[in-house]
């Protein structure tokens, strides 16, 4: 039983790390643009398809397909932002959120129009797991885990060292102060949307690598992404990572100690508990 729990925790950490990538995208957009982007699931699907096309049509390896997923999803995110969301800036966060929800529906159906509902699989050899004593771990999981970590490291470096990244953090921390200091808000918003949507796209591709790609690939993740972001504290970058790993573990543990069919309920219950007890989340500072 202990082994089972530990194995579930290992699985949860790996699943959570992959979940962290789109959760980072969601939380980054929230931090800088100040609204929850409900198109995040559809953007993840866009990335998954882009990666799949890169891999199976152009023969790209994973490391080549991942930037393609980032780029195409980033552009799709930019389109969502400029066509649907930005015109509503004056109407407040809620209107922007609803517009993004509608835009997500449109994206999903553009993909359906182009690719149909068929399942698409990456051309990737599938390897058996390694066994270490009682435990097992998959080379592919490890690779995805590594790719997810690399995405996060790149994001961290970008936020830490680049001018634009620092400007993004400044806007996220205190919008008015950042503007006073001469940060260009339009530019920062632009970059954030591309990076946020791009991260969602990479997350979608990482999930697609493991499963298969269809128009609902990203939509299936949405609730887990929200739970991760809320648990970590909406708008907190380290929070999204910690939240995603915690949600990943909670979902896997629920298989053993609870009922596997209730995974989605686990995410919901976590959201409710966090908001009741500690609305700012694990790392967040601002909630009300």
């Amino acid at each position: 039983m202990i082994e089972a729990l530990l194995q579930a925790l290992i699985n949860g950490v790996i699943a959570g790390t992959i979940l962290a990538v789109p959760a980072l995208g969601f939380t980054a957009i929230f931090a800088v643009l100040n609204y929850p982007n409900f198109a995040i699931g559809a953007l993840a699907t866009v990335g998954a398809y882009a990666g799949w096309v890169g891999n199976t049509v152009f023969g790209l390896p994973m490391l080549g397909a991942l930037p393609l997923a980032f780029g195409v999803a980033g552009l799709a995110g930019l389109a969502v932002q400029s066509l649907a969301v930005k015109p509503l800036e004056a109407s407040g966060a809620l209107m922007m959120a609803i517009a993004s929800l509608a835009a997500g529906l449109v994206l999903e159906n553009i993909l359906r129009f182009g690719f149909g509902n068929d399942l698409r699989g990456f051309e990737l050899p599938l390897l058996r797991d390694w066994r270490i004593g009682e435990f097992r771990i998959g080379p592919q999981q490890l690779e995805n885990f590594g790719l997810a970590l690399a995405c996060m490291a790149l994001l961290w470096a970008f936020l830490r060292f680049s001018r634009t990244g620092r400007a993004m953090r400044a806007v996220a921390d205190n919008r008015d102060l950042a503007l006073l200091r001469g940060v260009d808000p339009v530019r920062v918003a632009l970059v954030t949307v591309i990076v946020g949507a791009g991260l969602a796209g990479m997350g979608g591709m990482l999930v697609g690598l493991d499963t298969s790609v269809d128009p609902l690939t990203g939509t299936r993740l949405v609730l887990s992404i929200f739970a991760a972001a809320v648990l970590g504290g909406l708008g907190s970058i380290p929070g999204a990572v910690a939240g995603a790993i915690a949600i990943g573990m909670a979902e896997e543990l629920s298989v053993i100690v609870f009922n596997p069919a209730y995974r989605l309920v686990v995410g919901f219950v976590v959201i409710l508990i966090v908001l009741t007890l500690r609305p700012a989340g694990l790392f967040g500072t601002r909630a009300s």
């Binding site: 609204y35 929850p36 409900f38 966060a93 809620l94 959120a97 949405v222 609730l223 929200f226 739970a227 809320v230 909406l234 989605l264 309920v265 995410g267 919901f268 219950v269 959201i271 409710l272 908001l275 609305p279 909630a287 009300s288």
Partner: peptide, 16 residues
């Protein structure tokens, strides 16, 4: 809390 939290909670509620 900010109103967008309610949006997220209700979305989760419907799935639950």
């Amino acid at each position: 809390l900010r109103d967008d939290y309610l949006a997220i909670v209700t979305l989760g509620f419907a799935e639950a």
